[in-house]
């Protein structure tokens, strides 16, 4: 069992390394993509400087907290897209029958699939998150909490993407839904939760997991709360388990692209 896990890790490591090598074939493109993504994210600071000129706080957040939120969103999203970029194009793989080569390998299908590509601009997102972390300097414990929440955030992003993407085994056009919802998560996740009230707040905590991925973590970094901390960890585990279960349930319905031909 242990050696099987070891071998799996070895393959993962190689896959990620080769993904990076593929992207680095053109070094100029690689570097400009990363740098421009950092700039891209930084441009939103303008928006927040403007808003904080009008009020001292927005939705109960200070500028520093908004920056922490932005940083955490960027680093979680970045980490998820560096390691598991394929989750976010899973519908395409499923509908077009591109899972075949992973299914004939004696390794975990899900792990092989989701690690099989990377998104270079996501490195820029991740770096931006780290830069914000250094600028905002939330103390030693805050620093480690931020890193931990980057991981849980990435897990929640990935699991949520996997859950929606796996629905492609049953429904068409999930690519569109997955993209829009994940992008929606980021849109919500870059604004303070205090501006949302009532039903929308409920929706953002329980249906689209922005609350657990991003808002709670920022609250915990600013003001440590053990219950909330554990809730975030528990949520990440539960969502992952659900997503994995749905993926494997759907895999039985996998059509290997034969459906595509029939559809024409």
């Amino acid at each position: 069992m242990l050696t099987a896990a070891e071998n799996q890790l070895r393959v993962c490591f190689l896959t990620i390394k080769y993904n990076m090598m593929r992207e680095m074939v053109n070094k100029v493109t690689f570097l400009t993509n990363i740098c421009f993504m950092v700039l891209n994210n930084a441009s939103f600071l303008v928006q927040w400087f403007i808003l904080f000129r009008i009020r001292d706080e927005v939705g109960g957040y200070t500028l520093r907290e908004v920056m922490l939120l932005w940083g955490l969103t960027a680093s979680s999203f970045g980490l998820a897209h560096i390691l598991f970029a394929r989750v976010f194009s899973l519908p395409d793989l499923i509908v077009k029958g591109k899972l075949d080569s992973f299914l004939v390998q004696p390794k975990n299908v899900l792990v092989s699939v989701i690690t099989s590509s990377t998104d270079i601009s996501a490195i820029g997102d991740f770096l931006y998150g780290m830069v914000i972390l250094c600028i905002c300097g939330p103390g030693v414990s805050g620093f480690f909490l931020f890193l931990l929440f980057t991981v849980t955030g990435a897990i929640i992003f990935t699991a949520f993407g996997l859950l929606l993407g796996s629905l492609s085994f049953w429904f068409l056009r999930m690519d569109f839904l997955e993209n829009q919802v994940v992008m929606g998560m980021i849109s919500f996740g870059t604004y303070p939760d205090g501006i949302f009230k009532g039903a929308s707040r409920f929706l953002l905590y329980f249906v689209i997991p922005v609350g657990m991925a991003l808002w709670h973590p920022v609250h915990v970094i600013v003001n440590f709360h053990a219950g909330m901390f554990l809730a975030v960890l528990g949520y990440a585990c539960a969502l992952s388990a659900a997503a994995v279960a749905v993926f494997y349930r759907g895999l039985r319905r996998y059509g290997s692209g034969n459906l595509m031909e029939a559809r024409l």
Binding site: L103, V104, Y254, G255, S256, E261
Partner: peptide, 17 residues
């Protein structure tokens, strides 16, 4: 084409259920 060859081979290799 479309006779079921690929479908069969994919079931033999564990790709299709």
């Amino acid at each position: 084409n479309g006779a079921g060859k690929s479908t069969t081979i994919k079931m033999l290799t564990g790709i299709l259920y």
